[in-house]
């Protein structure tokens, strides 16, 4: 139990996907200018991440793995990316049919998730760190929540300075990157929470 909690806190705060592993920066810089859409994006990502963890773990252990599966390590990346693309597609159809209001709320952000490197990164980390099934799901969920939290904080800051007189050369990406740098520095404060 304590190891599950450690994995969860580490994924949300200490080794945050955005600010520590730099995964998902594209959508972070691109989308995070409004809090509402950032939250939608974060929720959709969390959902797909948890589902990806649930599906790629058995696939890796019973199909790809050299020890317990059919020994197909060279197909690892191709299979993972196909699973993620198919999953996003499925989730989209499922939500459209059964949870139409949620589908409408997520809108354009669902298909965008396929190219979010945080998802593939998470699937790879699960393999590298040799998590068991439950740990993988907790890790996927925590990573998604951490992503949501940071992208919403970032959107809040960007909304605040949207109309500030910023020097022209800093407008847009440079300022977003500097803000992210400050956020990353402050998140380092969490690093003492878990012994390395």
């Amino acid at each position: 139990m304590s190891s599950l909690l450690t994995i969860f806190i580490s994924a949300v705060l200490v080794n945050n996907f955005l600010l520590y592993y730099f995964l998902g920066i594209c959508s972070f810089i691109g989308v995070s200018s409004k809090m509402e859409s950032s939250f939608g994006m974060g929720m959709a990502t969390t959902f797909v991440m948890t589902m990806t963890a649930m599906i790629t773990w058995p696939l890796y252990h019973y199909l790809i793995s050299p020890e317990t599966g059919l020994n197909l390590p060279f197909l690892e990346y191709v299979i993972f990316i196909l699973v993620i693309a198919a999953l996003v597609q499925f989730v989209e159809m499922f939500l459209k049919k059964f949870f139409h209001s949620l589908y409408k709320a997520l809108g354009i952000y669902l298909p965008l998730i396929t190219t979010n490197c945080a998802i593939l990164g998470m699937a790879l980390f699960i393999v590298i760190r040799d998590y068991n099934y439950l740990e993988s799901i907790v890790f996927g969920f925590g990573a998604g929540l951490g992503f949501t939290m940071v992208i919403v904080i970032m959107a809040g800051i960007r909304e605040e300075y949207a109309y500030s007189p910023v020097p022209a050369v800093f407008r847009g990406a440079p300022l977003a990157l500097l803000t992210a740098g400050m956020l990353a520095l402050s998140f380092m404060g969490f690093s003492g929470m878990i012994a390395p």
Partner: peptide, 22 residues
């Protein structure tokens, strides 16, 4: 060498790039 330094350095490079183009 930490994540913060990476963000800030790339941010400054991007600003310099904008400045030169301007």
């Amino acid at each position: 060498l930490l994540p913060g330094g990476a963000f800030i350095t790339l941010g400054l490079i991007a600003a310099l790039y904008n400045y030169l183009n301007q």
